[in-house]
Amino acid sequence: MMIDWNNFTPWASLSGGILLGLASALFILVNGRILGISGIIGGLFRPKSGDVGWRLSFMLGLLAAPLLYTLVAGPTAARIDAGWVTVVIAGLLVGVGTRYGAGCTSGHGVCGLSRLSPRSLVATLAFMGAGFLTVFLARHALGS
């Protein structure tokens, strides 16, 4: 294993992570909800009275975050190497997978592990493992 020290951002990543934990803490303790993005979006496909507003308010906050960040700290950086077709396939896999697995990086990875849930630990190990394997196959075994 070779560590990529040039791109290592320990303080930004740690403080970003603490903000994610803080948001998840506020959401469960103030709003009574698990902060799981795929579950919050997925619930909109089964709209029930009184169960839509909180989802939309939260999503608006997420969408507004880059605007606030850009105003205060400058433009956001993103390097997207995947082509259009790969992006579509990846989106479909993420959509279907997170709903069958009942969670994603936020619901299982942050909230589930914080709750010490064995179910979320299995889910997190599975999606991280699949992520490692996919990048290994794409970058080293099959790709250039």
Partner: peptide, 16 residues
């Protein structure tokens, strides 16, 4: 489900 999600995450680098 989690395996499919992880594969998609690894392909494009985006989670939800």
């Amino acid at each position: 489900g989690s395996l499919l999600f992880g594969a998609g995450w690894g392909l494009a680098g985006f989670c939800p």
